[in-house]
């Protein structure tokens, strides 16, 4: 009699854990999909950031700045006589 009770409990426990495994696997899959999605978003943002940095660096390239300042904006380097030294 006692043996049958134990057996029944074990069988029930077995079924229950099997169902839990199924549920967990499913949840894992869902979580993994969510993770992938977030990873993708993160990567895309990173990529966008990288591209913007690259773009910024390309615009700010020293040679370009130099040429724009001199040619388009007509800037010149201050000559010695243009610089006033102030002492405090």
């Amino acid at each position: 009699m006692n043996r049958y009770v134990i057996l029944a409990v074990l069988v029930l426990a077995n079924v229950a854990t099997a169902l839990l495994v199924v549920r967990d696997r499913h949840e894992h899959r869902l979580a993994f999909i969510a993770l992938n999605k977030l990873d993708k978003t993160r990567d895309e943002l990173n990529i966008e950031f990288g591209r913007l940095q690259l773009e910024q660096a390309t615009w700010a390239e020293s040679n370009r700045v130099d040429q724009v300042a001199r040619a388009r904006l007509g800037m010149v380097f201050p000559r010695t006589e243009d610089i006033v030294v102030l002492r405090r």
């Binding site: 201050p78 006589e81 243009d82 610089i83 006033v84 030294v85 102030l86 405090r88």
Partner: peptide, 28 residues
């Protein structure tokens, strides 16, 4: 510059000083 302003209008002298102020600050 004084020699130059002696001949030119005094306005030029003030603009020259104004223009050079930022660099002068850097040199302090």
């Amino acid at each position: 510059r004084l020699k130059a302003t002696g001949r030119a209008l005094p306005v030029t002298a003030t603009t020259a000083v104004d223009a050079s102020t930022p660099t002068a600050r850097a040199a302090q």
